[in-house]
Structure formats: structure tokens, C-alpha cells
Computed example of a mutant assay.
Amino acid sequence: MESDDQHPLLDLLDIRSSGEEGVQVQASSREDWQKEARKLELQGKAEQAEAIRSRILQDQTPPWPVFNARGVEELTRKIFIDQVVGNKWRQQLFEYAAFYDAPELSERLAVEGRFKPAGHFLAQRPRIVTNRLAAYSRRQFHEVWADCDRYGLEHRTPMNQTPLMAAARAGNVPLVEALLEKGARRDARDHLGRNAAHLALREAFAHPQFAQNALPALWTVLAPLSLDLRIGDRLVRLERHQAEYFLVQSIWALIPITPVEDLLMLGFNREVIEHAWEFMPEAVLPTFRKKRAICILRLAI
């Protein structure tokens, strides 16, 4: 648009100013910029997306420590090698073990780390998980939006989850939908390589009520339409309607508490996977697809 209404080109085109006020341009909101950054990211324009987040959105760094692979490594070194005094670090590692369902780590903490509360893993785990997901379980999202405004839509919680991942694990379908509407990334992963769909699926494996009530809606909006797997020198695409797709997603969701880069060999007992599917709703895993997946399992394992 030409701001100079006396520009010679306007005379050449025989365009005259009407004398009316110019077009009022509405400033883009923070949410608009978040969506634009996500759109650029999907187009492969990571630098432009990062420029929006750093220059326009100006997201702050969260004030809490994030227990990603590096954070957990530092924590375990302090406790088991440096043997730091005090229970602050031990409590943090215990909460991490509880949140990620790692009883072996909790047992080591109780014995080697001499942290008695870790000996009550099964009793304490539900409380710790509930506390860590409290803000993402509520019907009111004020606390979540406040954190997203300060630290960005993709900031990490202390347990190394994005708000979308935490909301998915909490089974909060309205919050998941609201975050997606704002441009949250479905493909963001934790240090074990799991995304929001994997976390919802893993939760459904352990809790039949979650599987029946929350999983169908979550799976619809979170699960990608396809997966690309490299097998040797071939690239194989699995579609969401295929039994093989759900089998691969299930295995990924069941990955134990080991960073992906350290998984030199990962094996699964067939009965474990079949048990995980016991309460899968028809909307997520139709009977005919489940039978085919079980046949594949029995041939492969």
C-alpha cells in the first residue's frame, strides 16, 4: 500500500484520494504471533519461527530446573557420586522416578541414596503425579495461560513436558483442544522420545477409565495421520487406520525410563502388549484391527 497520496504513480493510474480516513490495521495479538511461528515451523522455516519467539514474543526462561536427560544425569551424579548432603536433591529425584514410573530408580535412591521416603514408591506415586499435573487437570486454565504468556507455548515443566503433553497425560480434553487452537506442537517430545499422543496412550494402558473416557477424543486430535519408518534402506509409511501403526505407537509408548539414545536393544514380551490393549475402546482400536495386530505380534515374537 502506498502511504504517499501525492505519489506520481497515482496520477498516472488516475487514482485520487477520497479524503476518507485510511484503513485501520489491527495489531496482531500474542496468540496470532504464536500461530504464525508454528506455521513457519511446519514449513521448515525454523529460523523465522525462532525470530518471532525471541524478538516479538520475548519468551522468558522458566525459573525452575527441568529434568530432561541432562538434568537427571546431573541429579544422579550429585546424589550417588558426589553424595551431597541434604534431601533436596533426593526428593527431586524421587519425584522424577514417581512421575516417570521408575521403581528401580526409586529403590536405588532408597538403598544407595539412603532416602527413606523412596522406599514407599507405590504409596507415594499417585500423590506425586497428581500434584505435578494439578494445573493441567483443572477446568479453569488461568495458571496454564499465565505460564504460556511468560515462558511460551512450548515451555517445559519441571518434568520436561510441554503444556500440551501434560494436559494429554492429565486427560484434560478441553485444555488439549485449546492449546492446539493456540498453535501447540503435537510432535514435541520428552527425553524418552514420547509425544503427547504417546503419553495419553501410556496412561490409557494403565487406567481403564482413562482409556474409555479421555483417550478416544485425545487420540483423534493428537495422533499423527501417518508414521514414516526407515527399514534398512527403505522408507515405509504406516497410516493411522493400519494395525501396524497402532502396534508401533504402543511399543513406543511403553518404552521404559531409558533415554532413546541409550536403547541399544529394546525387547517386549507379547503378553505385556496384549495386556496393555485389554481396555482399548473400539473407537481407538477396533476389534478387527486388534486381532490383526495380535496376529502380527504372535508371528514376530
Score class of each variant (00 low, 15 high):
45 K>F: 07
141 F>G: 12
271 E>I: 05
214 A>D: 13
194 R>T: 01
48 Q>R: 15
47 E>S: 15
66 V>K: 13
14 D>A: 15
237 R>D: 02
185 R>A: 15
12 L>D: 09
167 A>S: 13
285 L>K: 08
133 L>S: 09
262 D>K: 00
161 Q>L: 15
117 P>A: 04
80 F>P: 06
283 A>R: 09
133 L>R: 05
92 Q>Y: 11
163 P>M: 05
215 L>R: 07
11 D>V: 12
220 T>W: 05
230 R>E: 15
78 K>A: 12
68 N>Q: 09
165 M>F: 08
99 F>H: 04
270 R>E: 13
165 M>V: 13
216 P>V: 07
199 L>Q: 12
118 A>V: 06
179 L>N: 06
43 Q>G: 08
278 E>Y: 00
51 A>V: 11
30 R>W: 02
25 V>T: 08
289 R>S: 05
136 Y>Q: 07
272 V>P: 00
240 R>Q: 03
185 R>M: 15
68 N>P: 04
221 V>R: 12
35 K>Q: 14
18 S>L: 15
70 R>F: 07
287 T>G: 09
83 Q>W: 04
248 V>W: 03
82 D>Q: 14
93 L>C: 07
181 E>Q: 03
21 E>G: 15
50 E>T: 14
155 H>M: 12
186 R>E: 00
155 H>Y: 14
52 I>P: 04
96 Y>T: 03
153 L>C: 06
158 P>F: 13
198 H>S: 02
186 R>D: 00
186 R>S: 02
178 A>P: 00
103 P>V: 14
203 E>G: 06
59 D>M: 09
57 L>K: 07
84 V>G: 08
168 A>V: 08
88 K>L: 11
46 A>W: 10
209 Q>V: 10
291 K>L: 12
